[in-house]
Design a protein around this nucleic acid. Structure first.
Lengths: 190, 190
DNA sequence: TTGATTTTTTAACAAATGATAAAGGAAAAG
DNA sequence: CTTTTCCTTTATCATTTGTTAAAAAATCAA
């Protein structure tokens, strides 16, 4: 009965929910450990699980003209999913891959969405979670729209100082929307 | 009792709500007409109103290094708000301006959020609305991250064919994340 | 209409980024 | 430890985009 404490602490920081709601949520969650390099969710399948990163590091990625593009990193204590598939039911062009050996908690979205009907507070919790994710993407658009690659690199490092130690530069480059060669150049001239 | 029919048709297409919920929503909505060029919401104030564009055209914009940047266009039959302020309560760096004489329906967000408690279906309706907006921004990030300016321009025209007739090119340029001169060049060589 | 203002285009040059190839380093596998 | 593979940097050149300035075109106001 003390499972997934990290996840529920995370939830509590966003929107506290009733003990009953916690119990209902806990029942649908499952824990899994997977090694570095593994695909948690593969490209082409509809996203039906939201993951909480308990330990480790994950990324969403896709292929653009044959190039591997990182859409987002998810560190410990954060959620990762593929919104464009989760909310539309369309197959996702994106995959989720682990960049480190990780421990995750999976939340099956069909079960979760069912809980919305019985537990208003669970719906509210996840509404808040995705509103916050929405705000983040809005800010990221601003960053991509009007910051130079160098500014975006520096911003990223100040937000996630340990990123460099944990993620290959090629993934950081594609996340920033530039080539790896460009990133190398930027790093050299700083 | 037949007010704001366009808005409620729009809502119905997303998530039908009960007659009581419609009535409660209708009570907090207000209609307003404003001329081209006017600021519906000014920069620096916290966003406390969501607008539905019944007729006309609006944009969200902000200043970056003294330059006027368009974040988003909102045509008839769509909602416009400043999510990063609406959901955080922080003052917005963005404003909402009308690009044509417009008729709008305002939905005060504090009243709306209060309705969430009594009307589960209203919360659900707006959850869906913002989930869809979230998906849109995710797709826009992909576009900014890995399409050339020319591709983004063509994409925009095919999505909004009448944009050119209604919006000055300088706004389109900043929306695409490029200068007006660059956009002129792209248009010339097509 | 006329003049003023705003918008759009064009030109020339600078800066940033992309593409390709090659070399040097680091990490993983045997 | 050695080999192989993958990651990162460097170099060169092409392309895109930015900056500035000026001209042309369109719009607005008197």
């Amino acid at each position: 009965m003390e499972e997934h404490t990290g996840l529920f602490k995370f939830f509590d920081g966003i929107h506290p929910i009733s003990a009953k709601a916690i119990e209902a949520l806990r029942k649908i969650c499952f824990e899994l450990a997977m090694p570095k390099g593994k695909d948690l969710q593969s490209i082409g399948h509809t996203c039906r699980t939201i993951y909480y990163v308990e330990k480790g590091l994950a990324r969403t990625y896709y292929y653009k003209d044959g190039n591997d593009i990182t859409e987002l990193f998810a560190f410990e204590n954060s959620l990762i999913a593929r919104a464009e598939s989760l909310f539309t039911g369309n197959p996702s062009k994106k995959g989720i891959q682990l960049l480190e050996d990780s421990i995750l908690i999976g939340i099956p979205s069909p079960d979760l969405f069912n809980l919305y009907d019985q537990h208003h507070d669970i719906e509210r919790l996840f509404r808040r979670i995705f509103e916050a994710a929405y705000v983040e993407t809005v800010n990221r658009i601003e960053s991509l729209q009007f910051h130079t690659a160098e500014e975006r690199y520096k911003d990223l490092l100040s937000t996630s100082p340990n990123l460099l130690q944990r993620v290959p530069l090629k993934h950081i480059a594609s996340y920033l929307g530039i080539t790896q060669v460009s990133l190398s150049r930027i790093r050299a001239q700083i």
